[in-house]
């Protein structure tokens, strides 16, 4: 299983789920319709949802404690609606990380120094290949990073999420 796609860098620690999807959009009964509001209230210099690099990216590279705060899975649904498949960060909040795996998306943790290397290469690094079999991230600028993944998380990602897994096995 390989994902070779464009990356987008979000250089801020502790981006909480309120910043990923504001609470005012939590009033629906379905998981659709959240796409246009992803990062709507993220007040960050240089960031714009209409930026072409952001729109084309499917791999998000972020800083520590990404997805902290509210348990709202709407944050993951909003990422999904914008075709994001992978978030790479030094650390995630537990509930967000599990929500990603439960939906079959990848939350990959690599060390802060490796993330720093990625951010230092931000101008030149536009593509990554995330290889789930080899547990390896290959960047177009030649950088290669190894990662590990919790066995259960990998199973969920490969089996396309939690509910099917549970219905089949329990």
């Amino acid at each position: 299983m390989k994902i070779q796609e464009k990356v987008y860098f979000l250089d801020r620690a502790n981006i909480d789920t309120d910043q990923i999807i504001p609470a005012k959009y939590l009033t629906g009964i379905s998981i659709s319709g959240l796409g246009p509001h992803l990062f709507e209230d993220l007040d960050m210099p240089g960031f714009s949802q209409s930026n072409q690099d952001f729109q084309e990216a499917t791999i998000l590279i972020a800083q520590e404690n990404f997805g902290c705060g509210s348990s709202r899975e709407h944050a993951v649904w909003a990422l999904e609606a914008n075709d994001f498949k992978v978030v790479i960060a030094p650390s995630f909040a537990r509930i967000f990380r599990q929500n990603m795996f439960n939906r079959g998306l990848l939350a990959i943790e690599i060390s802060q120094s490796e993330i720093d290397q990625m951010f230092n290469a931000a101008g030149r690094m536009v593509n990554c290949e995330v290889d789930l079999n080899e547990k390896q991230i290959k960047c177009n600028n030649g950088l290669i990073f190894r990662f590990s993944l919790d066995e259960f998380a990998e199973r969920l990602v490969r089996e396309d999420g939690l509910v099917g897994f549970v219905a089949k096995n329990y």
Partner: peptide, 20 residues
């Protein structure tokens, strides 16, 4: 513990929840 909606769905359906 807090969980997301997918975990909640599994809990409602089968009474089971997963933790490290």
């Amino acid at each position: 513990a807090g969980i997301g909606t997918t975990d909640l769905e599994a809990a409602i359906l089968k009474g089971v929840v997963f933790f490290r």
